[in-house]
């Protein structure tokens, strides 16, 4: 599931950058008085800071909250929000909720899979692009909905979205 080499790379670059993410994370844990109950809140923060949850990061959280490592790992892998592997530079999330489904979201997803060569839920080998799915964004009023690099796109049109992704990936090549 994880690629250890990449994880340590990320960690190393973080240390080199002299970042204070560890401090922020520590402050979050302190705010919750290092209580095990706060595990999910702490993991949210850790992922927000680092983009994903590396084994090192999880171990550290386990240690600070005095939780068994397996429990932390069990929680981190139970919830779909937590990612144990780094995501691509660009991400596109397709909503697969019922309203979006009825309005053709699965066709949209297939098209993007074909375009990017990335299967839903995965990241391209070069780390440029992640194609993700959501169970429901709750944006059913504008179905089908997609999120491209954080921007919600309503009434997502197949040709329009593929063009945007092509441009996104093509531009930087």
């Amino acid at each position: 599931m994880t690629t250890p080499a990449t994880n340590t790379d990320v960690d190393r670059s973080a240390r080199v950058a002299g970042d204070n993410r560890r401090k922020i994370l520590e402050a979050t844990m302190k705010r919750f008085q290092y209580q095990g109950d706060a595990l999910i809140e702490v993991l949210h923060k850790a992922q927000e800071l680092y983009g994903f949850l590396s084994p090192e990061l999880l171990s550290e959280v386990a240690q600070r909250l005095r939780l068994p490592p397996s429990r932390v790992y069990g929680v981190a892998t139970f919830y779909h929000f937590f990612s144990l592997a780094p995501q691509g530079e660009h991400t596109c999330t397709i909503c697969l909720g019922t309203a979006c489904y009825v309005r053709g979201a699965s066709l949209l997803l297939h098209e993007l899979e074909a375009l990017s060569g990335v299967k839903a839920g995965h990241t391209s080998a070069d780390g440029r692009f992640s194609l993700l799915t959501a169970r429901c964004l709750g944006a059913c009023g504008i179905a089908p909905a997609a999120v491209l690099d954080g921007e919600v796109i309503g009434h997502a049109d197949r040709s329009d979205l593929t063009a945007r992704i092509r441009a996104l990936l093509g531009h930087e090549e």
Binding site: P68, P69, S70
Partner: peptide, 29 residues
């Protein structure tokens, strides 16, 4: 009382794990 084991993943992908889903022989707990 050591909680070496837990379950990772969910649904049909659930699996029992030791520590950080690492080889049992390397478990520190």
């Amino acid at each position: 009382g050591v909680h070496t084991w837990d379950v990772s993943g969910r649904g049909i992908d659930s699996r029992v794990i030791t520590d950080m889903n690492q080889p049992w022989g390397t478990s520190t707990t």
